[in-house]
Every structure is written in structure tokens, then in C-alpha cells.
Design a protein around this nucleic acid. Sequence first.
DNA 1: CACTCGTATCGATGAGTGTCAACATAGACG
DNA 2: CGTCTATGTTGACACTCATCGATACGAGTG
Lengths: 126, 126
Amino acid sequence: MSKSEVVELPVLGPEAVVPCCPPITAGELSVPDAERMAAMFKALSDPVRLRLFSKVASHPGGEACVCDIQDVGVSQPTVSHHLKKLREAGLLTSERRGTWVYYQVAPSVVAAMSAMLDLHPAAART
Amino acid sequence: MSKSEVVELPVLGPEAVVPCCPPITAGELSVPDAERMAAMFKALSDPVRLRLFSKVASHPGGEACVCDIQDVGVSQPTVSHHLKKLREAGLLTSERRGTWVYYQVAPSVVAAMSAMLDLHPAAART
DNA sequence: CACTCGTATCGATGAGTGTCAACATAGACG
DNA sequence: CGTCTATGTTGACACTCATCGATACGAGTG
């Protein structure tokens, strides 16, 4: 997991949601922070999207072709629609290689959630 | 309704949403797990709810009176509606003490998120 | 008991969302 | 070029949701 240490800017739009947010228990969230965090949670608030994200994340290298993950019980346009939403939320990135399109977990997504939730502060400090 | 009993919600069944879920990167989520996790994320996918939750969580003892947190820019019925949703999602619990109603962060909510995200596995395995 | 304050519920409404069928686009291959 | 496969886009529809005003309930207080 050495590559996920990098804090590079992925190919996100101008309104990427992921890089954000103070710990949730540290104090009252500001309105902009709350909106950013809510947008991120909203992207994961659908069971189909969650399963798609999970399938990509659990694939070797955090990368998967659409053809590998599209069996989630909904039609192909719906899969494409959900993948687009995950992309717009900054949780996934996509790349076309030949015939197929591959989706990757955006770098430092889980780490951003970790910071946001301020988990195990004692362990994190030491 | 009883006096101090606030546990009569018909919507919140025996299975609250929070206690759940394998790590998100460990493998493909099962459909029931995805639905549970999505419900939890959905409860936090609204900026107003996120700020309400944050206000409760950042109060001393993880507890706050509604009167202390209801200034989030929406009307009082809307605040009540959002608090109800957070309650139904298992993220908050409520208790009436005299005139005021106090909301607390449900135990092990953050820990559940931690397990779900598979953060700091060494520390989380305690 | 009447009045007031804090909180929950109801009903309505406008905005948003998940889903699909149909169509469009892009690359591979003959 | 034509065609096949893999994804994305569009338009429509049913459904959910966030919000509010009005109202009800519950607990103190005079």
C-alpha cells in the first residue's frame, strides 16, 4: 500500500468531494464541511453503488473493468449511471484501455474517511 | 406514550442499522450488508443531519439537548424530522428529562464505522 | 385549571433520485 | 466500410425526500 501514501491530485472535476473534512467529533462542522462530507456519504448511500464500490475496492490493485462488476441486479445503463455518480463524488476514477473501461478507487479515499471520523485517536497519535 | 420511555418507535425494528458490516475493502459486499451500510450512509448524507450529529457528538458526554443544537438554519419541525431519522438509523438515541429531550450518540457507532472501513487494523483488533 | 414553552406529528409541496428502454458512441476486427 | 461488443447518454416515470406551516402533545409554572 505504499502507493496510496501519495497525496497527488487525481483526475477529479473542479468540485471533487473527497479531500476534506475535520474529525466529526472534534466540534461543530462548518456548513461547507458538512456539505462536502454529506456529498461523500450520499454517493455511498445506495446499496448498488456501495456494492459497485466494494467490487472495485476488493479487486486486485483496487481496479476493475466494468465487465467484471456489472452484475449487481440492475440494467447496464443503471450501472453506468451509478459509476458516474461515484466518479463525480471523487470516489472512483475511470480510464479507458482499448475496448474496456477500468475503474479505480481514488487515492486516499479511505484515509480521508479515517481522518474524518477521528478513529482511535490514541493509536493514531502514537 | 409513557413518561420517560422513548423507545416506542414502530419504525425502528429489533435490528437497528448500525451494528454491522465487514470491512469495505475485504471483498464484495453481500446484498444485506450493502443495504445496512447504505442506510447508515444515507442517514449522514444530508448536511443538516450531519451538522446535528456533529453537534451532539462534539458536546461533552456525547449528549445534547435539542435546544442546544437546533440552530442549523431550518425550522423546528425539520430539525425534529432529521433527529428522528438519525434515531431510526441507530446513530442517535433520545431521552426525555423533564421539559427537554436529550440526544446521545449511540454507543459503538464510530467503532462500527471504523470496522467497516478497516482502519488501523492493528489497533482495531483490541 | 389556564398558560407557556419545548418538542413531535401531520399534510402538502417542490425538488431530487433510481430505474429502465431506446439510442449514441467508441474501439476491435474482418 | 460494416458489424459486433462494451459503455455512456437521453428521456420518461414512479418514487422518495427535505422543507414548511399548522397543529398536537407533554411538562413545568402561576
